Amino acid sequence: MKRLLITGAAGGLGTALRSKLAPLAETLRLSDMTEITDLSENEESMACDLGDAAAVEALVKGCDGIVHFGGKSTEGPWSVINNANIQGVINLYEAARKNGKPRIVFASSNHATGFYPQDQVIDNTVYPRPDGFYGISKVFGEAVATAYHDKFGMETAIVRIGSCFPEPRNHRMLSTWMSYDDFAAMITRIFDVPKLGCPIIYGASANTATFWDNSNVAWLGWQPKDNGEDYRAKVDADTPKPAPDAPDVIWQGGMFCAEDIHEE
């Protein structure tokens, strides 16, 4: 690609993955609410509020692919989620439609299906069961991606990200963890395949314990290599086991399924 846009580039995922995604394009266009100043030679920065349609259209112009990490990334007030994750997604897809229909990686979330129990393995055909405002916004984004594919032929990989960190932080993450290397390899395959369509992919490494079945997207050729099980002894030693009736033991969405709002 000539130019790959990464929204939310100053966030955790954007910061961790931008160097790993650099080989995909001659130029990485990095965007967040504020300017990014620590740029490498092949990077450029454009600050953008996703709720501003005109600014998003300018941001997308000239881009051959989009990795959409932008928006509110945790549970929170609806006013914030609405601007970034609802209006922002509409603005992004409209801008992409008007500017060459670049292929998109949409960072959805396991919280779109958070109210499935942990003892049930689900695939990408299940009906959404969001666990809060954040999960609801991701279901909305998935619907937008699907509609723009069916109506306009725009290709999107909907990635229901589990827990993408350097290593699992608690017992639930032994099942939901995805390493940075595995995510970068997935994104590479997404932009590599000749025909993508609009698949839903669960974003998790090759964890021994898992809630999710990706067999329907085996054609993508993505083969994660890391395994949360390698960290079980460390998690057991460092983290108290939750009570058997705790939300992060019962539900795939963990503490997002509690009645109060949690930041995670």
Rank of each mutant, 00 (worst) to 15 (best):
I250Y: 03
V126L: 03
V60D: 10
R172T: 05
Q252P: 05
I161A: 03
K98F: 04
I86M: 14
Y231R: 02
P23T: 01
F133P: 07
I66W: 02
A218C: 05
L220W: 08
A206K: 07
M255T: 12
L21C: 07
G88P: 12
D64N: 12
S205G: 03
I66T: 09
Q223K: 15
T74S: 13
A184V: 03
L196R: 11
A209L: 04
P242L: 05
L17W: 10
N91V: 09
E94H: 12
A53M: 00
S19W: 01
M173E: 15
P199N: 10
Y116A: 01
K138N: 08
K101F: 09
N110L: 14
F191W: 08
S137F: 11
S163A: 15
I190V: 15
D38I: 00
E142I: 04
V139G: 14
V139P: 14
G70D: 08
A16L: 00
C48Y: 09
K234G: 03
G197V: 13
A204W: 01
M46E: 08
F106R: 02
P240R: 02
Y127A: 13
R129T: 13
L21G: 06
A209N: 13
V159M: 01
K101Y: 11
P168A: 11
F165C: 00
Q223L: 12
S45L: 06
A147C: 04
G228W: 04
R18I: 05
K72T: 09
G11Q: 08
F183V: 07
G132K: 00
C164V: 14
A246T: 08
M46V: 15
L39K: 03
I187N: 04
N216I: 02
K195H: 14
D38Q: 14
S179Y: 12
F211Y: 15
D182E: 09
D260Y: 04
P102R: 07
R232H: 06
A9D: 14
N99A: 14
K98M: 11
C164K: 00
V217P: 12
M154A: 10
G8Q: 06
R97F: 11
H171D: 06
P242M: 02
D32P: 03
G8R: 01
E94T: 10
D238P: 05
I187H: 03
D236Q: 11
A233E: 15
R169V: 12
Y231I: 01
G114F: 02
G228I: 07
D123L: 05
L39Y: 13
T27F: 02
M255K: 14
V126Q: 13
A54W: 00
L92V: 05
S175N: 11
A143P: 00
V121F: 02
